[in-house]
Amino acid sequence: MRVTNHPVLGDAPPGRQVTIWLDGEPLAAVEGEPIAAALLASGRRVFRRTPRFHEPRGVFCGIGRCTDCIMTVDGVPNVRTCVTAVRDGMVITSNLKEVPAGDQ
């Protein structure tokens, strides 16, 4: 959910709308914002599953330290989405569909 108006900060600056692709689906984003912000704004909170127990992970530290929020971006794995800005046409893949068979 976006905070469009704010008592102290005023109306949100319009920003240039761009489209990013999340697991093949288009998602509206604002140029320059971190990937994590764009995902949270669209209500997406599960960014990946852990390799060992397949537990869900999302944004935790927001400063690029904890690596909870990593995803594959334009083919590069383990990109920290909280400190990586969106670009028009960026392709992001979560690993949510990669749960091995028999391990649901």
């Binding site: 976006r2 905070v3 704010h6 914002e33 971190p34 912000a37 949270l40 704004a41 927001g62």
Partner: peptide, 8 residues
């Protein structure tokens, strides 16, 4: 998120 990126 809320104050810089304006996302709740």
């Amino acid at each position: 998120m809320i104050n810089v990126h304006r996302v709740l």
